[in-house]
Simulated scan of single mutants.
Amino acid sequence: MSPTVQRIFPALFFLGLLFLLQCPSILCDCDFPPEVAHGYYEETKRLRVFIQNEVIYRCDKGYTLVGEAKLSCSSSHWTPEAPQCKALCPKPEIAHAKLSVVKYQYLQSSNVTIQCDSGYELVGPQSVTCSESRTWYPELPKCEWVISEDCEHVRKGRKIIQCLLDPVDVKMSMELYKLSLEIELLELRRDKEKKYTMETTL
């Protein structure tokens, strides 16, 4: 074997070793790592007796990882099973309501039941679910104040306070009651003036 050939073989061996070290996973062993909705992976490489590729999954903002974050390429397969990036929904803000489960954030597919406070009626769905789009489905309901029959014909300020729960509502109702009294006085005065005018013209 000539000296030139003897020099070429070690060089070729070294180039082949470099190729193996830098070989992408699709050419060496595994296919590309699984894609994860609302997430991505970062590839790392480790040297052992043989080459083993690893990837670490991360989720987009507003989503959380469910499952193993790290996957390894072994025997032409990625193990363990790829994780999922689940949506996180904010706490439902519904005035005059209680939630069946109170959290700062809720995981995708979580169900929440709404119950209105005493004196309020639920308008909309009683149960909502955290969707993949990080919103509640169906649309969040409302708790509206129920006016009882006794409060429909309130004539005295004392009864108004008994019928209302919120101090703000009480204040508003008192103002309305005061305004209604002023309107009644104006109507009485107008009727008297009209009657007086008719009597004087006869």
Rank of each mutant, 00 (worst) to 15 (best):
S2W: 01
A37V: 07
I161Y: 04
K171A: 15
R46K: 13
L21C: 09
I51D: 01
G39Q: 05
S100N: 03
Y196P: 00
R155E: 12
L15C: 11
I8K: 00
E199H: 13
V36N: 08
L186P: 00
C30Q: 04
L88Q: 13
Y137F: 11
P33I: 07
P33G: 06
I183P: 01
S75K: 13
Y196R: 14
L107S: 09
E132R: 12
A95C: 01
G124I: 10
A11E: 00
E132L: 07
D60E: 15
I26Q: 05
E42W: 00
S72Y: 05
A37M: 06
L47Y: 09
I147L: 11
G39K: 02
D169C: 02
C23M: 14
N111G: 03
I161W: 04
V112I: 15
G119Q: 03
K45Q: 04
C130H: 06
C73M: 07
Q162L: 11
C163D: 09
G157V: 07
D60Q: 15
V123R: 08
C89R: 01
S127Y: 01
G67L: 07
K45T: 06
Q126S: 15
W136N: 04
P90M: 06
V123G: 01
L99I: 09
F19L: 15
V123A: 08
S75I: 08
S2H: 02
K98H: 06
T79N: 08
E182V: 08
F19V: 14
K195Y: 09
S74K: 12
E199R: 15
R7D: 00
G119R: 03
Y120N: 04
L164T: 08
L188V: 10
Y63Q: 00
Q105I: 14
S118K: 11
I56M: 09
P138E: 01
G62M: 07
K103Q: 14
L18D: 00
L164R: 13
Y41N: 11
V55H: 02
C23E: 07
A37L: 09
L202V: 09
I8V: 14
I114N: 01
G157Q: 07
L122T: 07
E175W: 11
K192I: 14
L21Y: 12
S110I: 04
P167L: 03
L140Y: 05
F19K: 05
T135D: 02
K171Y: 12
V55F: 03
A11N: 00
Q52M: 11
E193R: 12
T44N: 12
E139D: 09
E121C: 01
C89K: 04
R48N: 04
R134M: 12
R48E: 05
G157S: 08
T201S: 11
H77R: 12
D117S: 12
Q108V: 02
C116G: 02
A97G: 03
Q52G: 07
L188I: 09
P83L: 02
L185V: 14
L17E: 03
